[in-house]
Write a protein that binds this DNA or RNA. Structure first.
Length: 113
DNA sequence: ATTCTCACA
DNA sequence: TGTGAGGA
């Protein structure tokens, strides 16, 4: 399939998809003449990138996560990466809870009025 | 109508 | 982290 269909299937813009290839986030696609040719595996990777973005993961953090062994996607690397994101999110919860605690102390100090 | 590259913010 | 312009 060409990039237009890939964009429709993933909900990503055509520009974004080309950009991801340019920065090495996805493989260099083979061309039919001048046109990039996408296959199912590429759609899966693009959907992963979309998911990651929704989780607040920057593209730079995704660098190196998507590996192709023998032309297949290495999902085990991705699994490890996602677990790391999970831990990161857990840490964020703790950070926010600490901020709330600090805020509560501020309230205590204002209480006299 | 679709995709391409290049320039740019 | 992408978009707009302009051409094939």
């Amino acid at each position: 399939m060409y990039i237009g269909e890939a964009a429709k299937r993933t909900g990503l813009s055509i520009k974004a998809i080309r950009f991801y290839e340019e920065i090495g986030l996805i493989r260099q696609l083979e061309r039919v003449g001048r046109y990039r040719l996408y296959k199912e595996a590429d759609i899966e990777v693009l959907l992963l990138i979309k998911e990651a973005k929704a989780l607040g993961v920057g593209l730079s953090q995704l660098q190196g996560v998507i590996q192709y062994n023998e032309g297949q996607i290495d999902w085990s690397t991705i699994k490890v990466f996602l677990h790391g994101i999970r831990q990161q999110l857990t840490q964020q919860i703790e950070d926010v809870q600490q901020k709330i605690a600090s805020l509560d102390i501020c309230y205590e100090q204002i209480k006299p009025s």
